[in-house]
Amino acid sequence: MNRLLRRSLATLVMIAAIVLPTAFSATSAQAATYACTSAATIGGLSVPVYHTGAGETQYCTMSTSQSATWNGGAFALQYALHTCYGYDLEIDGHFGPDTKKFLAKAQAREGITGDGVYGPITSSHLKFVLAASPSKCGGRV
């Protein structure tokens, strides 16, 4: 009986080691809890941000669920998709289907999952425009 109990316990520990890390890990978009609502200059680049009480963070998300209202973060993203990647999309500050489509293309071009959802991984891989020279593409945040 003691041997059976030890085997069962060992099996349970192995299952927990496999299941628990995936049960509590977040996807790139889920890792950020704030929705991008504005744009700011970070590292000389104009990037989508969320304004907190203490400043701003580029660790935010955007998706088509935010398409109803004008969004400075969506505007900055669209401008970057047009200027840095050459995509012909309307720069209107609304994260709609075209923004999602071209974001997915830019994500794939940068070697990350092309899901069309903006989050922390996307923000660290995309190129953004220079805040001081908006017609020029800068680099990555």
Rank of each mutant, 00 (worst) to 15 (best):
I121T: 07
D98V: 11
I42D: 11
T113K: 11
S28D: 07
Y59M: 08
C60I: 07
I112A: 01
S124H: 10
P97F: 15
A26K: 11
Y50V: 02
G138F: 06
A132C: 04
S65H: 13
A23Y: 14
I15P: 03
S135F: 05
K101M: 11
K136A: 08
L81D: 07
A131H: 07
A40L: 13
L4T: 05
F102E: 01
F24N: 09
A40H: 12
G139I: 02
R3A: 09
V19S: 06
M1P: 13
A108M: 01
I121E: 07
G44S: 06
A39T: 06
T33V: 10
T57V: 06
K101Y: 10
A23E: 13
N2R: 12
Q66T: 04
K101G: 02
A32N: 00
A106F: 03
A104P: 03
R109I: 15
K105V: 01
T113I: 10
T11I: 13
G86R: 01
A23T: 14
I15W: 11
G86A: 04
A10R: 10
A32G: 08
P120Y: 15
G119L: 03
S38T: 15
G53R: 03
I121A: 08
R3Y: 12
A104I: 02
T41L: 04
F128V: 03
G111F: 09
R140L: 02
F75D: 13
G119P: 06
A68Y: 09
K127T: 07
G86E: 04
A104H: 00
A68M: 14
F128W: 02
T113Q: 12
F24C: 12
P134W: 03
